[in-house]
Design a binder for these strands. Structure first.
Lengths: 225, 225
DNA sequence: AAGTTGTTTCTTGTATACACAATACAACTC
DNA sequence: GAGTTGTATTGTGTATACAAGAAACAACTT
């Protein structure tokens, strides 16, 4: 029995979904692991139904792969997948930043600046979890600033995939220092409302992320399932 | 009882999914329609379970919207949604074409050329259904030619949304003639392996599609659910 | 010993029953 | 008559039972 049985307002399937999602995202359940409905259900003290539905939800996030009549497995992300994704994310992040520079209010940009300031703080204190959260938040704010619903969705999805990859394959956080500067460049351009500059710095930022991932070849290249 | 009960190799949920999907895509079930599990189940002669799962699948395609404890509705696409999507599709289609120009073999490009030839034929014969299929096929081939898994997924998704929007809101097909030429420009550049040109023409192509959709203001702007 | 077939077991797929939230409607109060 | 509360109805959420496919293993054949 997991700690799932108190807030009765959310559907069970949601709770199960969030629980599993977190476990997979952070790598606590490893790629390739088979997810059996009964086991999970018993483990969390619910029936198979909500578990099934949660698993289906996870499939859409690319977190599990379902093989008909055989069951669900935690899906793997290869370095190639990662490259593919970052290759797509590059121009999209650029566009989002471009639009955000035009659309965001002074206040919103100030909020963004503040997030980056907090990021620096967290970096100095070495708070790794917080760093991840703040980086995510930074990019989400920009995405939302684009006011383009579809762009927001796709970028969030992409960011999550990257996040998961990093969780699973390298806990380093080497880039944190550089990230601060790269974010600053973007931020300055945004503050001065220089869309083109902001766009360019933003694209650079993702390109560097991509390079850093390609370079670090030291992760297991297991192609489980 | 619908015509669903023969091929017993695919899971029921898949069949239900495909059936509903088609009905929604083509506008036979209109945006805002409530989809009640029991009704659908009885209508197709299956139990609620596969229907539920099919509906959840549809949600991920943005074809239905689920409100907890209230049920599922066929979701609507607004012109704004469409603009948002095409705005994102524009650069992505450009990138895909760029990559495809580098990656596709002579044979593959020939196949693409052939699809466009068939398109012209279908246009002369006025076969509307076929036109849609061939256009979809044309763009899918290019997407696949990029060899970028993520790009392929996103582009297919985007194309479907556009397709649905056109199915629902205008049956015209006015652009068919222009499309032929635009495709030709792309094709020629690809054949000559001029990536940059191909990319540019491809972006133009989507831009024109976007304009055509924005112009035609004659669709109902119902914001159901 | 290797390969084939039959049987058992495990797990998913589907149907169904029951619980309970949301809504609509009726009766009651002011 | 408007507003409020109680009740019935409807439909989703969850649990569970049963059907059937897939995999593992054993027994048998050659």
């Amino acid at each position: 029995m997991l700690s799932i049985n108190m807030q009765k307002h959310k559907p069970l399937r949601e709770l199960v979904y969030e629980e599993l999602r977190m476990l997979i995202m952070t790598g606590q359940i490893k790629p390739g692991t088979r997810m059996m409905e009964i086991d999970l259900a018993e483990g969390m003290g619910v029936s198979r139904t909500p578990v099934r539905e949660a698993i289906r939800q996870l499939e859409k996030d690319n977190l599990v792969t379902i093989e008909p009549r055989r069951g669900a497995y935690v899906s793997d992300i290869s370095a190639t997948d990662m490259e593919d994704m970052l290759f797509v994310r590059e121009p999209l992040e650029g566009i989002a930043t471009f639009l955000a520079t035009q659309n965001m209010t002074e206040d919103e940009i100030r909020e963004l600046t503040d997030v980056n300031r907090q990021y620096e703080e967290a970096f100095q204190k070495g708070e790794r979890e917080k760093l991840i959260k703040l980086d995510t938040h930074f990019h989400n704010l920009i995405a939302e600033g684009s006011h383009n619903k579809y762009l927001i969705t796709v970028l969030k999805n992409l960011q999550e995939q990257v996040l998961r990859f990093r969780y699973i394959y390298f806990k380093s956080g080497k880039r944190a220092a550089e990230v601060i500067n790269e974010h600053r460049l973007i931020l300055n351009s945004m503050t001065e409302r220089k869309e083109e500059d902001a766009k360019r710095y933003s694209i650079d930022h993702i390109a560097k992320l991509r390079e850093s991932i390609i370079k670090e070849e030291d992760f297991q290249t297991k192609t489980v399932r």
